[in-house]
């Protein structure tokens, strides 16, 4: 839609504009120790620039034809991206966490649209339900009264914003090149051949169309089968990892507490 408004602008220009706008908007939005009118101005400017950048990226991305699946994707991805940006730039960590929850919702939507129903739900359940709540607990435990000074300044905002935008530009460039010709740097033997589409006789591209349907049909059962079949060992390792993390956190907490002297002296392992 938007791209149709700007038919004459080449994708390269769009991408460059998007990167620049992203950097500028992030820089403007990041807390830089400003206050009052200046802060408000830069916030507005940043928001506008950010929207413009989004528009650029949307335009460089896929030409969205109609409503349906793609429109849904556009909406949820916009939610995810805007909420993510807000997570990064919001001063108050509490609001930041809430924005992050919003971004999670958007990401879950994106995953759903992309055909990963289980993952979308899992993201909501695990992240928003468990991890994020943990974050909020910690925030409530640890946050000082009022807005801390370190929340109002950033570490090297300009350089960070530019670095992030450049990274985004490179990634977008690579992604945009996927359709035409893969850059040498990411040319990999078999997969790139499939992506580049220069092998008409290759059966994989045909499977790609079918693959989408393949993944949708009987989704969770087959994912479970895959997970506990081919990747059983990895699942076990992940379980061990979780256990280790659990025990590690408890150990660190108890040792630090005893070091503070608030708890009885160091405990010994029971033989």
């Amino acid at each position: 839609m938007i791209a149709s408004v700007l038919p004459t602008i080449s994708p390269g220009t769009l991408l460059a504009g998007g990167v620049t706008a992203t950097a500028a908007s992030l820089w403007l939005l990041l807390p830089r120790g400003q206050s009052g009118a200046a802060e408000r101005t830069s916030r507005w400017l940043g928001t506008l620039l950010g929207l413009a950048a989004l528009a650029c990226f949307v335009a460089t991305g896929h030409r969205l034809g109609g409503l349906g699946e793609e429109a849904v994707f556009l909406i949820v991805s916009l939610v995810a991206v805007i909420s993510g940006a807000a997570t990064v730039v919001t001063r108050s960590p509490v609001y930041s966490a809430i924005w992050f929850a919003m971004a999670l919702a958007g990401v879950a939507g994106v995953l759903l649209v992309l055909g990963a129903q289980f993952l979308g739900v899992a993201t909501i359940v695990v992240y928003a339900g468990a991890i994020l709540v943990m974050f909020l607990f910690v925030l409530m435990l640890a946050a000082p009264a009022g807005l801390a000074p370190y929340d109002r300044v950033s570490n090297e905002p300009l350089l960070s914003a530019v670095a992030g935008a450049v990274l985004l530009g490179i990634l977008s460039l690579s992604i945009g090149r996927l359709t035409a010709e893969p850059p040498l740097c990411c040319r990999m033997p078999s997969k790139t051949a499939a992506i580049a589409g220069n092998a008409a006789a290759d059966p994989v591209p045909a499977a790609s169309e079918a693959g989408v349907d393949l993944l949708i049909e009987n989704h969770v059962a087959r994912l479970g089968g895959e997970l506990f079949g081919r990747h059983l060992l990895a699942v076990e390792v992940a379980g061990v990892l979780l256990l280790v993390a659990l025990i590690g956190s408890i150990a660190i907490v108890s040792r630090a507490a005893s070091a503070d002297g608030t708890v009885a002296p160091a405990r010994r392992a029971v033989p």
């Binding site: 570490n155 090297e156 350089l159 670095a163 990274l167 460039l173 040498l184």
Partner: peptide, 21 residues
């Protein structure tokens, strides 16, 4: 700052690779 330096270095390398490609 260390992390920033690391990221900038990584970007420079990737940029060089892209430029060559």
């Amino acid at each position: 700052r260390y992390a920033l330096a690391g990221v900038i270095g990584m970007l420079l390398i990737v940029l060089a690779l892209v430029a060559r490609a």
